[in-house]
Amino acid sequence: MRSAIIADLKKDMQKILNNISNESVPYLFLLPCLLILGSLLSVPLYKVVEYSLYDNVIVQKNPSFVGLQNYKEILSDTAFWKATLNTIIFTVGSVIGHLIIGTSLALLVNTDINPKARTLFRSLLILPWIFTAVVVAVNWQLLLNPFGIINYGLDKLGIISEPLDWLGDPSLAMWSLLLISTWRGYPFIMVSFLSGLQSIPKELYEAAEIDGAGFFGKFWHVTIPQLKPVIYGVALLDLIWTFQLFPLVWLTTGGGPGRTTEVLSTMTFRYAFVNFEFSQASTVAVSILIISAAFTIFYLRNEKSKI
């Protein structure tokens, strides 16, 4: 009697173990990836937050815990708020530029032209995105050099009489930066839109044409509504990426002239690797994180209802 019960128990245990191993196999496959990604993401994140709560991390062996002192300091620092404002201007400006140029070019590339020509243009128009930030920065510095080709062209056209210092004049630097950023980033929008555009049934445009919609009417009433989900998704990504964008700003203006183009990411780098003030740098970095996260949550919550 007893041996029968034990045998039964053994069978049940076997079944349970089998079940566990069956169900857990997928998780086991995921485990290495989760471990690596998790540690690569979570450890630095934790560390940076930790650094922001101490004073003189890294440069001193035993940094002292100061709690939220660093945060209080940067919140009362006008340079921090100026950098935040610059970052917002830069981000919003860039994304608007990307959207306008990217959409226009997507519409242009989507028209009925010779397919070979269309492929050629599509490839050419994607190029700015492919170059690394360094290449883009150096390239535009040469173009925007006071004796560079852009000034030369403008001078020949009679638009300016003296060479303009695009990256060195405080009133021009941000605009120049926006120009460079727009040029660099529009392909992402363009490509996303192109695929969206191609999924819009041609008949909708024909119906709109018959209903009396002109070019703009068709764009507004047919294209945009169909692309709304794409626009929201892509704009969000672009906003987040541009908000933290570092190389392009650092390598073209370095935050100058005179900090007029200083954004939060360059401020972080400057604190860290120029001044070696790693605590302050971590604090600014965490503030970037908080702002990005808050914005994303707000954005997604708002859009969930719309899409």
Partner: peptide
């Protein structure tokens, strides 16, 4: 001086 000192 050459122009463009702030970006040179």
């Amino acid at each position: 001086m050459a122009p463009g000192f702030a970006s040179r």
